[in-house]
Design a protein around this nucleic acid. Structure first.
Lengths: 248, 248
DNA sequence: CGACTAATTGATGCTATTCAACCACCGTGG
DNA sequence: CCACGGTGGTTGAATAGCATCAATTAGTCG
């Protein structure tokens, strides 16, 4: 049986595509946009060499540090965030397995935002030079990076829209949908359920509300049967999509 | 004397750099990132050939249309926006003189957001093929596009952060600061004052509040002497920066 | 002048914040 | 084994921020 803390896709009815082991989710993501050759895939697998386990809620980089390393998420959930002097934190985007934090790193001088893990993660650190060389020598990969980034930008626009015009309840459902959908796309979640290793504080920082309010909204959602969330395992009822239809 | 509706920089104490006439603001923007040759500048000036005047609050493209044309703002203010079924609209980003709506157009199939003028504008329409050729043949220009886009992404992150954690008053001041700063950067505004050809509805759609609330916040700001806004001309007191210091 | 768009105002109630306290769970060390 | 601290979750009451509806007042332009 699937434990709530399990990240495995086994038993979810998800066809687990047997690709190369290391950079599995990465090549899955990139391959969705551009067909990649065996050499491309090999080069990508090479990215995950400098890999390490990182505890939950740990900073990978802080705002203002020089941008000399990119991060590739292999397992777990990380996030870009901005922290203000007041202590308030806003999460800008989620980094799920297969996400490379920024292929355009080469053009940055220093980070204007921080990156931190939310759940325990396995992270690969990609030196700037390695990334630059990869982009220079493998055009298909470079193109895939670009398209993947455009996808991230589209998500960012949707996120911004949600903050601007949706109520907290709708924003939270949106967040859940995004996570399940993206996890599903890399074979780590089912169509309507998956792991959700976020604390309510994390969720609050995603959707721009207080923790207390997240708690209350979440209970409403549970009571009305829209979501089931227990021990880091999330299940969305079919209605969840219908309740926030115009979310685009 | 400068009329409130004037877009001219004359009399503002802004050194109006005498560059090529047509794509002035564009080359100003791009040149700030990458040194451009005379040939580069000539190629850019060529972009502004298909130029036309567009009235305020007119759509340039609607969400879902095929992405076959890019837009270059020569005068006025335009915006990217998302509109929901309910009619609520969220503005994602402002397009000021010198902004090219999307250099990555080539990788898009259709727009996931709309673009509309806010004030009366002069707009150049750049066919996809022209843009692609420019990027392919002029590497310095391509690089400048990329860097300029990164700048826009940084602004987008700041915008999202503002929506998530700032109060309406702070968000509005931020919006004003952004407009004046960016206009200043292309020589169309002074350091602390400039044109603001937006309606209160536009502002509300930018900062994600109701129009009524924008009106009230604006009056508070006027009463407390932070801003002076009369007939499309905005002046920010020096205090404006201090009142929202941690805005980054 | 009339028609339109933009700005303004008041009254009312919902949405969400804040502060505070309390509970449940989990791993640690005595 | 239980006492302990820590983190994350839950709850209540008071209040602030903001939306909504509705109506009124400038401005602007043909």
């Amino acid at each position: 049986m699937i434990g709530p803390h399990s990240y495995s896709a086994a038993g979810l009815g998800v066809p687990q595509k047997p690709l190369d082991g290391m950079a599995g989710p990465l090549s899955l993501r990139l391959g969705a946009h551009v067909p990649l050759s065996g050499e491309d895939l090999a080069a990508l697998a090479h990215l995950a060499v400098r890999e390490s386990a990182v505890a939950a809620h740990a900073d990978l980089v802080r705002q203002g540090e020089p941008a000399d390393t990119a991060f590739l998420v292999l397992e777990g959930i990380a996030a870009r965030y901005v922290q203000r002097a007041s202590g308030a934190r806003q999460i800008l985007a989620l980094l799920l397995p297969g996400d490379l934090c920024d292929p355009d790193l080469a053009h940055l001088e220093c980070w204007d935002h921080g990156i931190a893990t939310l759940s325990p993660c396995r992270i690969a650190r990609v030196p700037r030079a390695v990334l630059e060389e990869l982009i220079a020598t493998r055009p298909a990969v470079a193109l895939a990076f670009r398209r993947t980034k455009l996808e991230a930008e589209a998500r960012s626009r949707a996120w911004l829209t949600a903050l601007g015009i949706l109520l907290a309840t709708e924003r939270l459902v949106r967040l859940f949908r995004e996570i399940v959908d993206r996890m599903h796309a890399v074979g780590l979640a089912g169509r309507n359920e998956g792991p959700l290793p976020l604390t309510q504080v994390d969720m609050a920082e995603c959707i721009g509300t207080s923790t207390v309010h997240v708690n209350r909204v979440l209970q409403d959602l549970r009571r009305s049967g829209v979501v089931e969330l227990k021990g880091n395992w999330l299940r969305l009822s079919d209605r969840a999509g219908l309740d926030a239809p115009a979310g685009e």
